[in-house]
Structures are given as C-alpha cells and as structure tokens.
Design a protein around this nucleic acid. Structure first.
Length: 709
RNA sequence: GCCACCGUAGCUCAAUUGGCAGAGCAGCGGUUUUGUAAACCGCAGGUUGCGGGUUCGAGUCCCGCCGGUGGCUCCA
C-alpha cells in the first residue's frame, strides 16, 4: 500500500508499485497532462518512478516559472537536448557534465572545434527538431560493473570519471527516446521531464571556457550556457529583465554620468575618480568618518608603500607574489637572499642542503660581508632564517602595499600598550594595490588599486566578541543607510586546505567567536567553508551586481596570526606581557567596488545626500536669466547646484537634466520671476509646483540630514 | 593566467565578394527667446586600438601585442 499525502493534506491510497505518473493521473487528467515530474518526500523523481510503500509526501511539478524544482528538471532535460543537438552537429564531441543552474543550464563538452555564437542558431534549430519529435526520456539502470564496461567501450574518459564518482551500486542512463531505439543517451542521475516536447522555451546564451573539475592545471573545456522557461512569454520576460539590468551597468552609467574613467593608458584596473564621482565618494567618506568617531575609532594616515621586510614579517611577501605589483628597487642581492630564505624555509631541516649552500656561496662570492659572517651548514633552520632576514633588512626594497594592516600594526607597536588602552581602533581610508589577474579585472568591482574604509582593532581575547559584534553592527548600519538591504552574509571559515596559518586552538577560538556573533545578529547568514582568509575566519557581506554576480563588500575578520608574526604585546593587569587579538574590518569594503554596486543599485539616480549634482537651475528663456542667477547663488549656499541658461528649448533642457539623473530641477520662467518663486520638477517627472527658494532649501536640508533614500 | 568573442569620430552604430571611411547624438559657430523628456542652419571631428604580413589595393584576410566583454581559475 502506498499512501500519497498531497500538499492540501488529502491522502490517496494506491497499490504497491504504483508510479508517480499513475498517482498524478488519479488526482486529475489536467494535472497529468501538465506534470513534468514529482517530488516524493521532498526528493524530485521521474513520473515513471515507482513510489515506495508506506506514506509519502507527494507534490506534482508542473511548468511554472516560480517553481524552482520544476524549472530545475526542465532545464536539466534542456541540457540533454542541447547536448544531443551539439553531438549531432559535431559527432566527435565528448560530453562531460551538464547540470541546471540558476536561470538555466550548461553543458561542458570537450570539442576541438570552438563553437562560436553564430552557430547557436544551428544548435537551436537542431534542438527544435528534437523537441518537435517529442521523444520520451527513458531511464534505465545497469549494475555498476556492466555500466563501467559499457562506458569504457564508449571511450569517453569524462563520463567514466563521472561514473567513478557516482554513488550506488547501479548507474542510470537516460535515452532521449525509447530503450534500445538507438537514440542519443547519457549517463545521468536524472530526473527528467517525460518527453523532449516538454522543455518549453529555450535559448543558447553563451559559450565560455571552463576547466575540468575547476582545476586550472587541467585542459580547458567548452561550456555552453542556455536558459529554458515554461513558455516563450517567460523566456522573453527573462531576456527583457536581463536587458533592463544591463542598463544599470555601472561600467556604462559611471562614465556617462561623469563619475569615473578607466583609462588604458593609466593602466588596467586603475580607476580615475572624476569630480562628480569624487564628491560622491567624499560624501560616503564623511558619513563613515562620522561613524568612526562615534564608535571610538582613531583616524591614522600611513603611506601606500612600505619596505619589503615589513611584508616579509607580515607574510604577504613573497607568498602572494603573484597578486602583487613587482617590488620596487629590489637589488639582485636581495632577490637572491630572498630565494635563499625560501629554500631554507622549505628545507624544514636543521641542516642546510646542497642547493642552499651553493646559492649562499654564489651570493657570497660578490659580497664580502656575507663571507665574513658565513653560513654554516649545521646551523638550525631558525638561526639560518634569522641570519638571512638580518641581511635582507639592510636591503632597500619596497612594495606597493597589498594590505593596510602592517602599517597599522607598526603604529600599534610605536607605543607601549597597557590593557587599559585596549581596544585600540586605528582607522584609515587606506589605498592598496593588488595585481589581480587580467581576466578578472572589470569596471569598479575588481580593480588593481583600491581604497578600503579600513580599520584594525587590537583588543584582548575577552574583548573580541564585543568588537566583532560592533563591527558587524557598523557594516549593517552603513548598508542600511544607503538602502543596500538585499545582501547575504557569509561566515567564512577554514576548510581542510593547507593555506591557513596559526594554531588550531586559535582557529577554533576565532571561528567560535565569528559564529557566535552571526548567530546572535538576527541576520540571514550561511557558512562558507574554505572562504576564510589565510590568517583567520571572517564575516562577509555579499551583494549582487546588475548581471547577478555576487561581490564581497563589507568584511569583518578575526586574526590571531599577525599579532604573533609581529609579536604584538600589551601589558596586562597582572603586569605581564600578553598578546592582543586583531580584527580587520571594512564596512564598505573598497570604495571602488562599493560605489560601483551603488551606481547599479540606484541606476545612477542617487538619493539627494549622495547625488553629485543635487539641483539644476534651468531658465525658460533668457528673460528670466538674472533672477535664475540669483536663485542659483542662493541654492549653491547649501546644495551642489548647476546652471543651465543655454538657448535650448525648455523641453530639451529637462531631458538633458533627467538624463544626468539630477534629483531636482528648478525651472525659472517669467511667472517665477514675477512671484519670486521656483518651479520644482523631480528627475522622475513629477512636478511639485512652486515655492520660494527658502522653502525648497529647507525641504532639501531636511532630506539630506535624514540621508533619505 | 586560461577559453571564446569584440575593438571604426567623445558616445551609439553604418561601410557588397578586399575597391574613394559615413550617419545620428554630443562639441563648436550662427539663427531662434522658448513653460516641463529632442528648435533650425552650418562647421569641425579619423594614421579604422597598436605593430607587422599577404595583396595592384586591407576597416575587411593572416600573425603578434594592447584593451574591453562573458565565463573558468584566483581574490591575502
């Protein structure tokens, strides 16, 4: 007996061995026609699947654009149809992996011929044929051994690899057609829609490269992306929505609104803030500065560059060499000494190896001072490293700073600190430089030079929890004020990887603190394993851009590691030295990325307090020019204002101002001159009527103080 | 860094199979004096991203580089 409990609570009984399709048919013929798949106890299954005995929760999946489970099945099936189309056009294609993803699906293939966008149409028409044939998706299973033999015979190493990774004693295949029809088939876990005619409206979106298993050392595959929807109408709505989102793209709006420029001659990923972008950034900085002072931070200023040895101590150099701009003024001697240091460290032995000694001899040949000191082979590793560091400290190499923490740490260390001084909170809009991979740079969201609204907190272990919570509070407050409320919060913890430094005990403490803070924050958060920084776990605020890519903005990071590397201290109440804990935090993250996201969030139409130009005074004709000038002078005393007294028609002046997303237009014609008023028009076309300049200014002042969005 | 695509005036885009580089907007000059999202006339604007090659002839074909876009990888 199978008891099927429907979402409305009704229970229907069926004999053992009943299929999902039969259970659906029993509910109603209309539903049976519509059904794509079913969910049994929350697990999606084919309609052909037999239901287990006993009572099950049962839900029918029909093609609805708001049912993620239904879309997932349909898109997975669409991936099969696309793969078959590609295989029929290029029979040498080796299939790899083709899952559904958000808004669509992809299929990874190994094919020498590079599929070009011009060929999408050919693939789509082949897909249309397969859809029109309305062939059933037929599942069959083979015992693991038999399946492996079959796959080996077919000679696709990727599928063989998939099969080896698959769980269970039996492997399933899906034929797009009846069993033994000779139709196209694929090793696949399923489930699928009943037949190829049910995949709705679809479109191939793009083709991109993708490493097999995401491993950059492996060969690159082609990943063909598509999207699929229940109907043409929903597909069009999706494409339209994409189009609308692209109109908000900060890379288009930013230059158009005069906010920033990205100049290849200056360098890839190095943003130029133009006056309008700079005033916007300045306004944000003022806001953050106010918060910092309110929250007990102390502003500091430090240079954008520091000695290499500073970063050797912090661990940034040379471990992250690939993502740093090359060092400045590093001598050949220093380069060699650094290589020696790396070899010595890698040896992890209290006896110098042959390579190490040979390198030393090579360096020492040119440098008498090194020969004098010497480099005994039986010197313990720590002593050898110390000796090399001593030599390196005399070298004049500099690094554009990749992070601000080392400078702030040195400020902390410039005074003797008592437990009474803690927490010490040092804040700076710190500009850092990172040599990001060329393929990753884009717009303001990923740049090579950026300014963080950074701060480093030095506190006792007992203070850690409150400090972390305070940082989270500030980050949330900042996002709230600008109205960026659609974000996710990630507790970024370590995984089993080897990139992490510091003791397990400290990591456990830090992660516990991080988790405790997010748990009590009331935020919507999730755990990101392996997302931790090398020195500690963090809390990251993630926001999506106009095409759905997620970016980390604010971050709060817990760090036991750098205090040890720099041997940070404070004198405790017991008159003994203790080690402080550090918190790294940046509520906005980088101003570049934050402003980039902000441009998209507001589609360039910033709230009054942030708008680079808050008001534009426009004359109807030159007859009202003198009074308009008077209005402008008054308005400029409290607002960022522009003037348009050109000889364009008023309609065009309004159009141009609206294009620049200026919040308020003050229109001055002969009526306004006569009444000594201004006529107010908002950027979205509302006419707020006339009032005096003083009234307008007061209303604006109120809106600005409230930082209304 | 890897794969694919793209690069023509400040911006958006044209330019048969390889055959005289063009338009709209913006800019500048003039006319117009305007009432809530485009007044009219004119002028100027280019080593077609850069460098090689093929060809009688290259914006167009080939190679290299630079830059951009979408993914992948990375993101201290």
């Amino acid at each position: 007996m199978v008891k099927v409990r429907l979402p409305d609570g009704k229970v229907r009984e069926h004999p053992d061995g009943v299929t999902a399709a039969e259970a659906v048919r029993a509910i109603g013929p209309g539903l049976a026609r519509d059904a794509l798949a079913a969910q049994v106890d929350g697990r999606t299954v084919d309609l052909a699947a037999r239901l287990p005995s006993g009572e099950v929760e049962f839900r029918v999946l029909t093609p609805k654009a708001d049912d993620p489970a239904a879309l997932e099945v349909m898109r997975h099936s669409a991936a099969h149809v696309m793969a078959e189309a590609i295989c029929s056009l290029w029979p040498e294609t080796k299939l790899v992996y083709g899952p559904p993803v958000e808004n669509g699906f992809y299929y990874d293939i190994d094919l020498k011929h590079a599929i070009s966008p011009e060929e999408f149409e050919r693939i789509e028409s082949r897909m249309a044929e397969i859809v029109k044939e309305d062939r059933p998706f037929t599942r069959y299973e083979l015992p693991r051994g038999e399946a492996m033999t079959k796959l080996e015979r077919e000679g696709n190493p990727y599928k063989l690899d998939n099969a080896e990774r698959a769980e269970g004693d039996a492997l399933s295949f899906y034929v797009t057609g009846t069993r033994d029809s000779g139709c196209w088939e694929d090793l696949c876990r399923g489930p699928h829609v009943p037949s190829s005619g049910r995949i709705g409206a679809y479109k191939i979106m793009q083709v991109a490269g993708a490493y097999h298993h995401g491993d950059a050392s492996k060969a690159m595959l082609q990943r063909v992306y598509g999207t699929a929807w229940p109907s043409k109408k929903e597909l069009d709505a999706y494409l339209n929505q994409l189009e609308e989102a692209r109109k908000r793209d900060h890379r288009r709006l930013g230059p158009e609104l005069g906010l920033f420029a990205l100049d290849p001659l200056v360098g890839s990923g190095l943003a130029l803030w133009k006056p309008k972008g700079a005033i916007l950034r300045h306004t944000l900085e003022v806001f953050i500065r106010e918060e910092l002072l309110r929250r007990g931070y102390q502003p500091v200023y430090t240079p954008h560059i520091g000695k290499l040895d500073l970063y050797r101590t912090s661990g940034h150099f040379p471990y992250y060499k690939d993502s740093q701009f090359p060092p400045l003024y590093e001598s050949e001697r220093a380069r060699l000494l650094n290589a020696l240091w790396e070899i010595a460290r890698a040896s992890n032995s209290d006896r110098a190896g042959a390579e190490e000694l040979a390198l030393f001899s090579r360096i020492a040949a040119d440098h008498a001072d090194l020969r004098q000191v010497g480099y005994p082979a039986d010197l313990p590793m720590e002593d050898r490293l110390r000796r090399i560091r001593g030599w390196l400290q005399q070298e004049d190499g500099y690094l554009l700073r990749p992070m601000n923490c080392p400078h702030h740490i040195r400020i902390y260390q410039s005074d003797v600190r008592s437990y009474r001084d803690l927490p010490v909170r040092l804040a700076e809009f710190g500009t850092v430089y990172r040599y990001e991979q060329s393929g990753e740079i884009g717009g303001l969201t990923r740049v090579r030079g950026m300014t963080q609204d950074d701060a480093h907190i030095f506190c006792t272990p007992e203070q850690l929890h409150d400090e972390l919570a305070g940082c989270v509070d500030m980050a949330r407050h900042a996002l709230n004020v600008v109205g960026l409320t659609d974000y996710r919060v990630r507790a970024s913890l370590r995984d089993g990887g080897d990139k992490y430094v510091g003791s397990k005990e400290n990591w456990d403490l830090a992660e516990a603190a991080i988790l405790d803070v997010v748990q009590h924050s009331g935020m919507n958060w999730f755990v990101g394993r392996g997302e931790a920084a090398f020195y500690g776990p963090k809390i990251d605020f993630l926001v999506k851009d106009c095409i759905g890519r997620e970016w980390q903005l604010g971050t709060v990071q817990c760090d036991y590691n750098l205090p040890e590397r720099f041997e940070l201290k404070y004198i405790g109440a017991d008159n003994h030295e203790h080690r402080p804990v550090m918190v790294h935090r940046a509520p906005l993250g980088s101003l570049e990325r934050f402003v980039g996201i902000l441009i998209e969030h507001f589609a360039g139409a910033f709230p009054l307090w942030l708008a680079p130009v808050q008001v534009r005074v426009i004359t109807v004709s030159e007859k009202s020019r003198d009074y308009a000038r008077e209005v402008l002078r008054t308005v400029q005393k409290g607002l960022r204002a522009e003037f348009d007294d050109g000889d364009e028609r008023i309609g065009n002046k309004i159009r141009m101002a609206a294009h620049m997303k200026i919040p308020y237009l003050l229109i001055i014609g002969e009526q306004e001159v006569a009444n000594r008023t201004v006529s107010i028009r908002t950027r979205d076309g509302r006419q707020l009527g006339s009032c005096t300049v003083a009234e307008f200014m007061a209303a604006c002042a109120d809106e600005i103080v409230k930082r209304g969005v």
